[in-house]
């Protein structure tokens, strides 16, 4: 148990999950034409994954840079922000992540239980359009990561390797006037706790 770096296990699992979640959010919220998405099966549920190489590489590079922070339990939130043409957020999908201190682990059930939990989150994302208003045309997206100042050093090396630099987010991309808060899913497992909710702007168009 000591040999297994649980931070790395959690980071692998979460980054794989976040990749699926980001693709699905972009599909469900129609940020891109549905024609670039392909039906796939992840966590035993049908999902939609983009097959556009440039977009896929962007998402992979983003998560590759976030991974070192998750490994060290320094990523407090990962936020998928959908913005209108003026780059003002209309929706923020907030993944709050925390890794509890390891108390008791039974590896047999650990991963299968975690898979069930992540499956439930994916299912909630796939039907979230039922509780969200339509977005205006011409939306795009970005990904924010909330961390501690000292932790940003942990991202520096991977940014250079991937040639994918990060900057401090603009206030306009972070703040949202009178957001409506829509909880989607909370999950608790032995090695990670996660809460997913959406902040939706009151007047989108």
């Amino acid at each position: 148990r000591q040999d297994l770096n649980f931070g790395q296990v959690v980071a692998d699992i979460l980054c794989e999950f976040l990749e699926v979640a980001i693709h699905l959010i972009l599909y469900v919220r129609e940020v891109y034409p549905s024609g670039i998405f392909q039906k796939r099966k992840k966590y035993n549920v049908p999902v939609q994954m983009s097959c556009h190489p440039e977009l896929n590489q962007y998402i992979q590079d983003t998560l590759h840079c976030v991974k070192p922070l998750i490994e060290k339990n320094e990523a407090e939130k990962v936020v998928v922000v959908i913005m209108d043409k003026e780059h003002h957020p209309v929706e923020r999908f907030v993944f709050e992540i925390s890794q509890p201190p390891l108390l008791s682990i039974s590896s047999e059930t650990l991963l299968s239980h975690l898979e069930q939990l992540l499956r439930a989150v994916i299912l909630k994302i796939s039907v979230c359009d039922a509780v969200l208003d339509n977005n205006p045309p011409g939306c795009t997206f970005t990904v924010l990561v909330y961390t501690r100042e000292a932790a940003t050093r942990n991202m520096e090396k991977v940014q250079v390797i991937k040639d994918f630099p990060w900057i401090v987010a603009d206030e306009q991309e972070v703040l949202m006037q009178e957001p409506r808060l829509i909880p989607l899913k909370t999950m608790t497992s032995d090695i990670v706790k996660m809460q997913l909710y959406v902040e939706e702007r009151a007047h989108k168009s």
Binding site: V31, Y32, P33, G35, I36, H52, P53, E54, L55, Y58, I59, D61, T62, C65, E76, K77, G138, C139, T140, F141, T142, V143, L144, V145, Y146, T147, R148, E149, A151, T152, M155, F164, P165, W166, I167, V168, A169, E173, V174
Partner: peptide, 27 residues
Amino acid sequence: KSGGAHILKPLMSPPNREEILNTLLDL
């Protein structure tokens, strides 16, 4: 910054809808 958190984002933006549409034929 919110509550001491350091909020970071990628410098580069993702491809937008038009850029995706323009490359569909190539793909």
